[in-house]
């Protein structure tokens, strides 16, 4: 899995000038006495793909859920294009500017694939039904599921369902797409078809914040890698994070993906 360098991808330079699409400032979140996020700062520039890695339970998913407002944050703020959207009651308008795809796809089983994709545009954006359907079919065609438009979600494989879930999120034209371990629930042979779609989206310049355990995928897609552990950012770097981790914790984490036979 390789990805050609994109012409617009110069995030390191852009970071200093442009306002980030998504910015998290000092995000704190606890569940009871368990501090999951202890002051996270993170900015995602337009067109940038940021990959969050870290050991299980380090708060990566929680951070995404806080960013989109599924979890109330205990401290800090979430900014979209420079304006704060993390008030006690985030308005519907701000919510629709971010998209999220979940580990367990969570398509709505009571409607067809096409209706899953057109639901939010027609309901939230009052889009014309025919136009929304046309758009949905185009999105489905792009992920190779044109012929599945009228199928029911439970007749699709996990990989197909996840690709529909991606279309469903894209139908709202999110400024930033959050992907939460989108392949963790998939059989190995389906992982590739989903990640290929995500990779293509990255090449088209979609801004994404991705949580994944697929290290080779992370290496292929990341403009920037952020490692979380113990509720804080441990290390942040370019794709060379994987070859040259700076901190001992990052090195220890990356070693857990390698296999060594004893006595060789």
């Amino acid at each position: 899995m390789t990805r050609p360098t994109r012409p617009q991808s110069a995030p390191a330079e852009a970071a200093t000038s442009a306002t980030p699409v998504l910015e998290l400032r000092g995000i704190r979140k606890s569940f009871g006495s368990n501090v999951v996020l202890d002051g996270i700062d993170l900015a995602v520039q337009a067109g940038e793909v940021v990959v969050l890695v870290g050991p299980s339970g380090c708060g990566k998913s929680t951070l995404l859920r806080c960013a989109i407002g599924l979890e109330q944050i205990d401290g800090g703020e979430v900014l979209l294009d420079g304006s704060v959207v993390s008030g006690a009651q985030r308005d519907q308008q701000a919510r629709t500017r971010m998209g999220m795809v979940f580990q367990s796809y969570d398509l709505f089983p009571n409607m067809t694939v096409l209706d899953n994709v057109t639901l939010a545009p027609t309901l939230v954006r009052n889009a014309d039904k025919a136009q929304a359907e046309e758009r949905a079919r185009a999105l489905l065609a792009r992920v190779g599921l044109a012929e599945k438009a009228d199928a029911w979600p439970n007749t699709l494989s996990g990989g197909q369902q996840q690709r529909v879930a991606i279309c469903r999120a894209l139908a709202m034209d999110p400024e930033v797409l959050l992907l939460d371990e989108v392949t963790a629930a998939l059989d190995p042979e389906m992982v590739h078809e989903v990640l290929q779609v995500v990779l293509e989206l990255a090449d088209e310049g979609l801004t994404m914040l991705i949580v994944t355990h697929e290290m080779s995928f992370a290496r292929a897609i990341a403009d920037r890698v952020v490692m979380l552990d113990g509720g804080v950012v441990v290390e942040e770097g370019g794709p060379d994070f994987f070859e040259h981790p700076q901190t001992e914790r990052a090195r220890a984490f990356l070693r857990t993906f390698e296999f060594h036979r004893v006595g060789r």
Partner: peptide, 17 residues
């Protein structure tokens, strides 16, 4: 499942919708 509510929330649907 809660994830159905989460999915709808992430798409911007109101709780009534």
């Amino acid at each position: 499942p809660q994830s159905q509510y989460d999915g709808a929330f992430a798409l911007g649907l109101t709780s009534k919708q």
